[in-house]
Simulated assay, not measured.
Amino acid sequence: MPDLILHHYPSSPFSEKMRLALGYKKLPWRSVEIPHIMPKPDLVALTGGYRRAPVLQVGADVYCDTALICDVLEHVQPEPALYPPHLKGVSRIFAQWADTQLFWAAMGYNLQPKGAAHLFAKAPPEAAKAFAEDRKAMSSNMVRLRPGDATSAYRSYLRRIAHMVEEHEFLFGMDPCIADFAAYHGLWYTRNRVPLLADILNTTPAVNEWMDRMEAIGHGTKEPFSAADAIQVAIQAEPLPAGENLLVDSTFQDDHAIPLGTRVSVTAESFGPEPTEGVLRAATRTHYTLEREDARMGKLHVHFPRIGYVLRKLEGA
């Protein structure tokens, strides 16, 4: 069983998605808490630029984006399944919708002025300003819903989820799958981080009951771990070759006319515009792997999913 190191922070919705998934899989994990805004020097040293939370580290391999991290967990511990065979297609499609459309509607509602004021009620004024500037920089190339529009969409989405969980314990049956974890975390933020706005959930009692079942899964067994210790793990490890790491898909799929061994960048399509640069070591049907060198840690492999990320050849490469 590999040592799983999750770099996250407590109020991060996507981190909550992964904490619950680890609990569901009953996988022990090491917990490195990172800052919720920049600078994040230790995390960026691992990833080479990517700074969204969470990030999963296994030795000198760094896995970015919860969609990819869930694939890693499924490989490490196949049961209970996040992707049951009869739901593989529909659960992934639903999860992609939930991680984007549903999530941004929920956060547009959660971070309306009343919600933001609650979040920073006990913090100095400069903390709220720093958070707003940080998130503005991360969303510079995306369109954000206005609070009223987000509220309307959120109410509609909650009703649709209610229709699903009125019939089953979870979204697609008696057991949770990736769809449940992807749908939960934006709603978790409403209930746990901005409770003064949580009345919107009370209009759909079945959703509240489903959320209780999700919360009961818990976070499993975690061990507090320092960023310095995580860096030491990376120093002492070597990245695994393509095909031997925790992403079983290794067949080269060339959709960009960029051969392996080329210097490239990978950047998120929307939220979080910071690129990671390195040498392309894998480009499969599901993911990219970049090899990069860090002054402290030496050679690292950083992995990204294909969907949601842009691959570019660096000029002069």
Rank of each mutant, 00 (worst) to 15 (best):
M174R: 15
M138C: 09
E209K: 15
Y189Q: 14
A162P: 08
H163M: 00
L187G: 06
N141D: 13
V143N: 09
P147A: 10
P176N: 09
R213W: 04
V207W: 10
M142K: 04
G220A: 02
M174Q: 15
E169H: 14
Y154R: 02
T221A: 08
V207C: 12
D175T: 13
A179I: 11
E209W: 06
V165C: 14
H185W: 12
A137I: 00
F225P: 05
A206T: 03
F172W: 10
N192P: 01
R146L: 11
G220F: 02
Y157Q: 09
M211L: 15
R135F: 10
M174A: 14
I178T: 14
H163C: 00
K136R: 15
G218D: 06
W188L: 04
M214A: 12
D199E: 10
V194E: 11
A132M: 13
R144P: 01
H219L: 02
A206D: 06
R146N: 07
S139D: 11
L145F: 12
H185I: 04
V194W: 06
N192F: 13
V165H: 08
N192Q: 12
A162I: 07
K136S: 13
C177A: 11
A198M: 13
E133R: 10
L197E: 06
N141A: 13
V207G: 13
H168D: 05
R146P: 03
W210A: 03
R155S: 05
R193Y: 00
R191T: 08
P147M: 08
S226N: 01
S140Q: 14
F170T: 04
G148C: 01
Y189H: 14
A162D: 14
R191G: 12
E209I: 09
D134I: 06
I200T: 09
R135K: 13
H219Q: 05
T190E: 01
R144G: 04
A182Y: 03
I178W: 08
